[in-house]
Design a protein around this nucleic acid. Structure first.
Lengths: 206, 206
DNA sequence: GATTCATCTTGAACATTGTTCATTTTCAAG
DNA sequence: CTTGAAAATGAACAATGTTCAAGATGAATC
């Protein structure tokens, strides 16, 4: 096994094609929504046959799931970049960064949260785990802010808080529903955190 | 026009069939999820042709949307039954009732929130309005609890709070994600409200 | 009750889209 | 260059949404 450079001409093409398929699928989901994603469109845009898509991803769900996996990875990266000096600021930063990312990639996030598998096939564990990990990112700042509290409780609180923020944002960005202006929505999120942190006995140092 | 009883034999059959189709579609969504809903299955179970389904509902989305409409109506009915003597209790009651309803009808609620129209057709306004109205049900108790606050702000707060509760519940019930035991989830929701109401300066009288 | 006609119902045919697989093509190895 | 394993192809198939010409139904009229 040559780890350093195992780049046969064959593998190069394979890798390039794989990336191209994913890029195209992601673009379609992002611009026209998951429901508009069609195998033939992807294959044609990637300049290959539908069979190749199946060779590379097993089935069409495989394409969607790979895009979703990369979406949650990108999200995690963005969230991990939130400054952590001040734990209170970090909490606001996480919420606001989630809002910004969701606003930029609404359809990709919806694909991540709304896609259902055919029949009773299970959703891939690694994706679920990554989502859970992202939603656990409020844990470190909360631990610093509530040093007396039980670890398990803080873990729960972290998930609860992030889920609440997710609800506010995902419904707030649902153009079908309210079409809250993004600026307004940021205010909403901030005020929500104001009140909730105050209720937890945390001083909003803003 | 005979308003009292315009029941020709024809109309009776039409109405009965319509109800039957909806009942079957609802049952399939509720038990196997929206993605498992197929025209032919519905038609066969209803003892009619696929053409009749189209005559009655225009297209397949029409069936789904009608089920969704009835779901939000049932939800509103349940939420409207929450006692309103004590405004604080009412808020907890609304959240807990939403949790109970969501737990009982998880797939129907997911159909309501996750169904996307084909192409760029708009989601029916009346359904959106009903969802918004349901999410505004926290407004009356909040007004009583925060008499000094601006009406518009309370309207926003109502939507924000309900959206937050929705996020906690919809992700908490996502068996693919966490599989929080329902009893645990109720505790989570209650504690969430505890903290948030405290932060709003409302005494949790529990 | 027979006739008529508007309406509803039917289901085969069609359209769209996911999936398979026998055949052909490619290319790294010998 | 030859060869064989792997990949690519795309026609055929399968599943499913949609249409519509032809037939069935029942309310109205006589």
């Amino acid at each position: 096994m040559n780890n350093v450079q195992d780049e046969s001409l064959r593998d190069q093409k394979k890798i390039r094609r794989r990336l191209q398929i994913l890029e195209i699928a992601r673009a379609i989901i992002a611009t026209k929504g998951l429901r508009s994603l069609k195998v033939r469109d992807v294959a044609e845009a990637a300049g290959c046959s539908v069979g190749s898509v199946y060779n590379e991803f097993g089935d069409f769900d495989g394409v969607i799931l790979t895009v979703n996996r990369e979406t949650v990875q990108a999200l995690t990266l963005r969230l991990a970049g939130v400054p952590s000096e001040d734990p209170v600021r970090q909490l606001y930063g996480l919420a606001e960064t989630y809002l910004a990312f969701f606003a930029e990639h609404a359809n990709l996030l919806r694909s991540l949260f709304e896609h259902r598998m055919e029949d009773d096939r299970p959703y891939p564990d690694d994706i679920l785990q990554m989502v859970m990990d992202a939603f656990a990112l409020m844990y470190p700042p909360l631990v610093r802010l509530l040093p007396k509290a039980d670890d398990v409780k803080i873990a729960l609180l972290s998930r609860t808080l992030f889920s609440a923020v997710h609800g506010i944002i995902s419904l707030g960005l649902e153009e079908r529903m309210v079409a809250v202006p993004p600026q307004m929505l940021r205010q909403q999120v901030d005020q929500f955190l104001d009140a909730h942190l105050a209720g937890l006995g945390i001083l909003p140092v803003r």
